[in-house]
Every structure is written in C-alpha cells, then in structure tokens.
Computed example of a mutant assay.
Amino acid sequence: MKKYICTLLLLAFAITTYAQVENTMKTFDPSFAHTVYFWFKNPDNEADRARFEKSLQQFLDNSKFAKTDFIGKPPKASRDVVDGSFTYSLIVTFESAAAQEGYQKEEPHLLFIEECKDLWEKVIVYDSQGIAQ
C-alpha cells in the first residue's frame, strides 16, 4: 500500500512539474494591459454566451499580438464596492502600445467584433501602460 501511494505521489509530481516546464503557461506582460467589459442585451441567454465564448476564444487563439489573456464573468459580489453588473470581462496584455494597436486592426479581432457585436448593448475599455519599477 505504501509503495502504491508513493508511486501515485511521484506520478502526480512528474505531471505537474512537466506542465510547468513545458512552456504552456504564458507570462503576464506588464507593458500594456487592455481590459474590456461587455454588457449583453440578453445576459441570461445560454446560446448567446456560447457563441460569444467560442468566437472570443477563436480570436484570441489566432491573435498575433496578444501575449496573455483572461476571460471572466462576475462573481457574486461580497462588498458594495464591487461592480458585478457586466456579463463578461476580458484582460489582454501586450508587449507595447504599438502591439495593442496592431491587435485592434488584425483580422481575427475584426471577425470577432462582426460575429458578436449584436450580443452586447455596452462595452467599456480601459487601457493601461505599466509604470516603471
């Protein structure tokens, strides 16, 4: 039994270590962050959500400029200062403002907007450049 448990622990360690060194994780680039909030016309429509998520993921998978990305939904707010009124959020990082400008004009981004613009009633974008440390 002890040998079985040791083997399982060793296997789990090997799998997690391999995943970390395999370079499958992207590094957050603090140079330029592009944060987008989407408010849907029909936020409870599962078909709309599925279409949006599929199109957005396809766009991000094919972007030449996006370094890292995060797609989120609002959690249940536990404090009054948390705004959970949006349907989805997107955070994308870039190596520079010029790379973010290229992203705005690239075909996968334009296709995503065309495929999904009828889903949202409001979009707010916050762009930020990192401060020197």
Rank of each mutant, 00 (worst) to 15 (best):
H34E: 11
T35R: 06
T35D: 02
Y37D: 02
Y37T: 03
F38P: 00
W39Q: 09
F40A: 06
K41A: 05
K41Q: 08
K41M: 05
K41L: 09
N42F: 06
N42S: 11
D44H: 10
E46W: 00
A47W: 00
D48M: 04
R49G: 01
A50Y: 00
F52L: 01
E53M: 15
E53G: 01
E53H: 07
S55A: 15
S55K: 06
S55E: 09
S55W: 06
L56I: 09
L56G: 02
L56V: 07
L56K: 03
L56P: 03
Q57P: 02
L60E: 00
D61G: 00
D61M: 11
S63L: 08
K64T: 12
F65P: 00
F65A: 05
A66G: 07
K67L: 02
T68V: 08
T68N: 09
T68A: 07
D69R: 15
F70E: 01
K73P: 04
P74E: 06
P74S: 06
A77L: 08
D80F: 08
D80Q: 14
V81T: 15
V81Q: 12
V82G: 04
V82L: 13
D83G: 11
D83F: 09
G84E: 11
G84W: 01
G84M: 06
T87V: 14
F94E: 03
F94V: 07
F94S: 04
E95S: 12
E95H: 11
S96Y: 07
S96M: 06
S96R: 05
S96Q: 08
A99V: 12
A99E: 15
G102M: 10
G102A: 03
Y103P: 09
Y103A: 04
K105R: 13
